[in-house]
Simulated assay, not measured.
Amino acid sequence: MEVDFLLVGQGLAGTVLSHRLLALGQKVMVIDLPGGNQSSRIAAGLYNPITGKKMVKSWNADLLFPEIEPLYTELEELLGTTFLYKKNIYRPFLNIEEQNEWMGKTGDPGFEPYFEKIFSKELYSEVTNPFGGILLKNSGYVDINTLLTVYSGYLTKKNALLEATFEEESLEIGKSGVSYKGISAKGIVYCNGLGAMKSRFFSNLPFAPVKGEILDIIQRFYPGEIINRGVFRITLPNGNQRVGSTYTWHDMDQGSTENAKNELLEKLEKLVPEEVSAIQSHRFGIRPATKDRKPFLGEHPDFPGVYIFNGFGAKGVSLIPYYSNTMVEMLLNGHQPEKEVNIARIKKHNSNF
């Protein structure tokens, strides 16, 4: 079989990149083990333009956010299913100084695309918000698990999915492309998250995995908005609430932990002090983050045709729509990604790569 590109991994990165390539008439084969993609499948899928304790605009927001909803809407139409939930995010102010600071930003054109409304008084009696808060737009979440499952079926119908463990020792690199178990291609793209850390090509890249845990709970309070300060709280279509997420760089063990559950419940109580009547599920994933918190895009310096599209960490839903276009431009037209995300930046600091 001949294809244009082999893609390793059908997590969110592999899903979106393969869609971009197929839409441009390219032939792809995605290699993916059923039941994998744990990081993508447990992710809450939040896209949020104002982040962090200091409530700053997300990195590259003005480039990233115009691409998010059009891409996922396009995939919804292609697949005939719903997984994009456009929702405002309500972020309570911590003090009067923060309220005043954001009142002053209402006339700033740089923030206008992300402001819906500012409240100077309590919006919800169920939320700890005595100083009011900011209501953000161009935000929401993606049900990544549904997207990956339905898209897997789509690839299968197109004979573009090889359901198997990728065995790198069977990959052959030639002058005009690559071959893998009888499949030849112009190139291969590693979209397989932490799996790339075990690759002989990319094991020296400075990944910095981050473990995250989330809860699905039952709590009486059903706002239309996502409530986000310290933790996020999303009302799901079934009426349950999703709460997350923890971030740890130290505990990389497989499995959810009591410490993370308690941390989430304590932060939730501070934000929404309503009784939690049940915990429906407690899940974990290990995100393929990087040391500089920027993704990895590019071609291996010593092996032409071997590429990586990876390292999106906790913000894959926001980053992948824009950077998948960047990756396509590299694969099809040879355009180099910008320095901030290009793996060429690593060579300056890592002589082994």
Rank of each mutant, 00 (worst) to 15 (best):
S199H: 02
K315G: 05
A61W: 00
K347C: 10
D302L: 14
M252Y: 11
D292T: 05
S40Y: 06
N352I: 14
K198F: 15
T128S: 13
L123R: 03
S203E: 13
G140R: 01
L24M: 08
K315L: 15
N88F: 14
N342Y: 06
S176R: 10
G311H: 00
E116P: 10
V150D: 06
P273Q: 07
Q280S: 05
S184L: 08
S40E: 15
F284M: 10
N129C: 14
G193A: 09
L24R: 08
L24Y: 04
F131R: 00
H300D: 07
N352M: 11
N138C: 09
S203N: 13
E338W: 04
G174H: 14
L268I: 14
L147P: 07
E122R: 11
T257M: 07
N192W: 04
L84T: 00
H282S: 11
K117A: 09
R283P: 11
Y222P: 03
L46V: 15
D62I: 10
S120P: 03
S184Q: 09
S281L: 09
E69T: 11
S281E: 07
K87D: 08
P113G: 00
G52F: 12
H250P: 03
L84C: 04
V210S: 11
A164D: 12
S58G: 01
R242I: 03
E340F: 03
H19T: 02
D292M: 06
H349I: 15
S170Y: 12
I218K: 12
G193P: 04
Y85P: 04
P66A: 06
A289I: 14
N350Q: 08
T326S: 07
T51E: 05
G35A: 04
L22R: 03
G11P: 08
P337N: 06
V3F: 12
I226T: 00
G80S: 07
V276W: 03
L136D: 07
T290M: 06
G45D: 05
K291H: 04
I279P: 10
K157D: 13
H349K: 12
G334T: 13
S318L: 06
L215S: 02
N325Q: 10
S203K: 13
V276F: 03
V276P: 05
L135N: 00
N325A: 10
Y90N: 08
W59L: 11
Q336Y: 08
T290D: 02
L6Q: 02
Q254F: 10
V142W: 00
I346H: 02
T82I: 15
G14N: 13
S281D: 09
T73M: 07
F166E: 01
P223L: 05
P288I: 00
Q336K: 13
G316C: 06
M29Y: 04
T248Y: 00
N129D: 15
G187N: 02
L331F: 06
D216Q: 15
S18C: 10
L319I: 02
A160V: 13
L236S: 01
A13S: 15
I346L: 05
G133F: 03
G187V: 06
D302Q: 12
P223I: 09
S256L: 06
F232T: 07
R229D: 14
L46C: 08
F131Q: 02
S184V: 14
L271Q: 00
N129I: 12
G316Q: 01
A23E: 12
P34R: 01
W59R: 09
